[in-house]
Simulated scan of single mutants.
Amino acid sequence: MKDEKILKLRAIVATYYLEDKLDYLKDSIKKEIVSEIYNSKNITKNTPIIQLFSNVMPILSNDQLNILILEFLRRYENSNKKTEMDRKRIAVLLNNYLVTCYEKGIDGDVVDKTISCLMNMQDVHLLIYKEVGKFYFELIKGNKTNALKIKQELKNWNYTNLTEKLKI
């Protein structure tokens, strides 16, 4: 993996994750990951960086997570050409951010900006990503009843496997 730095970092994090030892990941690896993400050119189209960022969110500090997602949102909003695949990758990343925020108890302006960006994506193929994003946004905001309604709507749309993964 000498020439595959991003893949190597993802593999390291995946190994620690599967062994339930994310807390033991070395700070030097975390710093290297943050540096790779932050210094990436064209982050909104760089699939390996998007995947790395999505995979490592749980190991980042709240400040690192928010700084990186803000930078990501800024670059995304300023990018001109957004293909359907780009928007799908971004939607997945934003959902992962919202899940991580829910799990870590993070709320605030960055969460609001994230859901706003997700909801402003103009593509019918992203409807499910938007619904999942709204589900976690409602949980972050403490609106469990609204989250349950969204989950039930998804179940009514025959997304039963998905709804089984949406934990409250």
Rank of each mutant, 00 (worst) to 15 (best):
Q64L: 02
E19G: 00
Y129C: 15
S35I: 00
E131A: 14
V56H: 01
H125W: 12
Y24Q: 14
A11Y: 05
K155W: 12
K8V: 10
Y16T: 01
G108I: 04
K26D: 12
M1I: 07
T114A: 08
E77P: 05
N95C: 10
W157R: 13
K104S: 05
I150N: 02
T100W: 04
L93A: 06
R89W: 09
I69Q: 06
Y136C: 04
E36M: 10
N80F: 11
Y102M: 12
E32V: 06
T114C: 11
D3V: 10
K82W: 01
K144V: 13
W157H: 10
K151F: 07
E71M: 11
L93F: 05
K167L: 03
N120Q: 14
V111D: 02
I59D: 07
H125E: 15
H125R: 15
L139A: 06
D109I: 09
L148W: 14
P58Y: 02
P58N: 02
G133A: 03
T145P: 15
L98N: 00
R87V: 10
E164N: 14
L98S: 04
S28Y: 01
V13L: 00
A14M: 07
I115C: 02
L9V: 02
L127R: 13
L126Q: 04
K104H: 07
I90C: 11
D107P: 03
L65W: 04
D112T: 11
E32S: 12
S40C: 13
M119A: 14
E71I: 08
R10T: 06
D123T: 06
L70T: 13
I59H: 01
E4G: 09
M119N: 15
I33Q: 00
T145Q: 15
I50Y: 02
F135D: 11
N120T: 14
E71V: 07
K149E: 11
T100K: 10
M119Q: 15
V56Y: 01
N95E: 11
I50K: 01
Y24A: 15
E131L: 14
N42F: 05
L52Q: 03
N120H: 15
L70F: 12
D63W: 05
D109C: 03
I33V: 03
L139F: 03
I37G: 01
Q51E: 12
S79D: 09
N46H: 07
V13F: 01
V124Q: 05
K82D: 08
R75E: 13
D63Q: 08
E131T: 07
A14W: 07
L98Q: 03
I6M: 07
C101K: 01
K167E: 08
E84K: 15
L94D: 09
I115N: 08
L73P: 05
D20M: 12
L126R: 06
K30N: 00
N46R: 08
K8I: 09
C101L: 06
P48R: 08
G108Y: 02
L127Q: 14
K31F: 08
I6N: 09
T163E: 10
K31Q: 14
L9D: 04
L162I: 10
K151H: 03
I168H: 11
Q122S: 11
E36G: 00
Y97N: 02
K155N: 15
K82S: 05
T100Q: 05
K141P: 14
S35Q: 09
T83S: 15
H125L: 15
L25K: 01
F135P: 10
